[in-house]
Simulated scan of single mutants.
Amino acid sequence: MNHIQLENISKIYNANESQAQSVLKLLADGMDSVAVKKQTGYSVGLYDVNLAIKAGELHCIMGLSGSGKSTLIRHLNRLIDPTSGKIWVDTTINSKTLSSKVQGIAKENSSTAAAPVTADTDGINDTNSSDSINILELDDKALQQYRQNTVSMVFQHFGLMPHMTVIQNVAYGLRVRKMSVEARHEVARHWLNEVGLPNIEHSYPDELSGGMQQRVGLARALATDNPILLMDEAFSALDPLIRAQLQDQLLELQDRLNKTIVFITHDIDEAVKVGQRISILNGGRLVQTGTPSELRDNPADDYVAQFMRAKA
């Protein structure tokens, strides 16, 4: 079952509709993004990307710098909107309450909870639970709810709020959901323990190492129990040893949590280690999607083959 599906997604930066259509025609005629930029002055983020990501899959998106990786992942939570295309998300996979694990932690503090811990999904797929939604059609309120209840993100440079303690950072998404302070802090402590960071809840981000900060970022993303987790070069700023440890931890957590994870990386070794399938971008175009062995044994072109030879 597909959880996310991109349909003919293109992104042309800083162009109005008529200018974008001219650029898209050049791309359709076979011109590459470098030549388009030189001729028109407009940058191509993505061109005609069609991609299906399965529910519960850890899917890696990779390519060289400027290939469109970060542009693509930011479409999935609409930090960037496309020039054209559709983005379908099956929100029926998203429960209307937090998972039993998180709900159970909250119940330990039920005497302090202001209200039942529920995820408000008004405006998102209320009428037909069997259909995916095109998230590009969401209004502001529904988009806010989608971001709160369906998708979480871990950033390359941690994205922690420096004026908040560790536990406040991890619990922030639950604060937005109006969970009581004691209940959300219990959930936050659970996830800090899960990522190997017990007993640092009163520290501030600048008191932590880079690896510890990224673990806090991962705990924050997991605390809301959203079914989709976006990770944009999440481990690339870390030294190799810490990076390998976090890769192992991510795989161990995913084995238990079974989330849909979209993982951006420029490192083929990392992609092969963590990804069930890998999609390779080049100049904003999706070149090939497959398992590591499929990409190695049947590369679509020399660009893919070079990546896989680098792994070998």
Rank of each mutant, 00 (worst) to 15 (best):
A221N: 05
I87L: 00
I93T: 03
V154N: 02
D206S: 04
D267N: 15
F235R: 08
A35E: 13
D255C: 08
V117I: 07
L241V: 02
A188V: 11
P82D: 00
I280R: 08
S70V: 10
S203H: 13
K11S: 13
G85R: 07
K38F: 03
V151C: 00
Q213L: 10
I228E: 01
V216I: 15
D122H: 05
D90F: 07
A171V: 02
V272P: 01
G85W: 08
Q247G: 09
H202G: 04
H157K: 11
W191I: 01
T127I: 09
N94E: 11
D29E: 15
L286W: 14
N169Q: 14
A114F: 15
N199G: 07
L208M: 07
T121G: 08
L241Y: 00
I200Q: 13
E252Q: 10
I4A: 00
L27T: 11
N8L: 01
I167Y: 04
A20S: 15
Q21T: 14
L208T: 00
H163A: 08
G217A: 04
N258V: 06
N8S: 12
I12A: 15
L143V: 06
P198I: 00
P299C: 01
L222H: 02
L246S: 01
K69W: 05
P116T: 03
D126Y: 00
M231K: 10
H163M: 06
L251S: 07
K311W: 15
M308T: 05
M62L: 15
S84V: 11
E182H: 04
M31F: 08
Q103W: 05
N94S: 12
P198R: 01
A271L: 10
G30Q: 12
D122F: 05
G68K: 01
Y146L: 06
Q145H: 14
H190T: 09
D140V: 11
N8W: 03
I200L: 14
N134T: 12
L79E: 09
M153D: 00
I9R: 05
E182L: 04
I264N: 06
L230C: 10
H75E: 10
G159Y: 04
D269G: 14
N282C: 08
T112M: 07
Q247C: 07
E252V: 09
A52K: 14
A114L: 14
Q306H: 13
V170D: 04
S70G: 10
N149R: 14
N50D: 12
I4V: 05
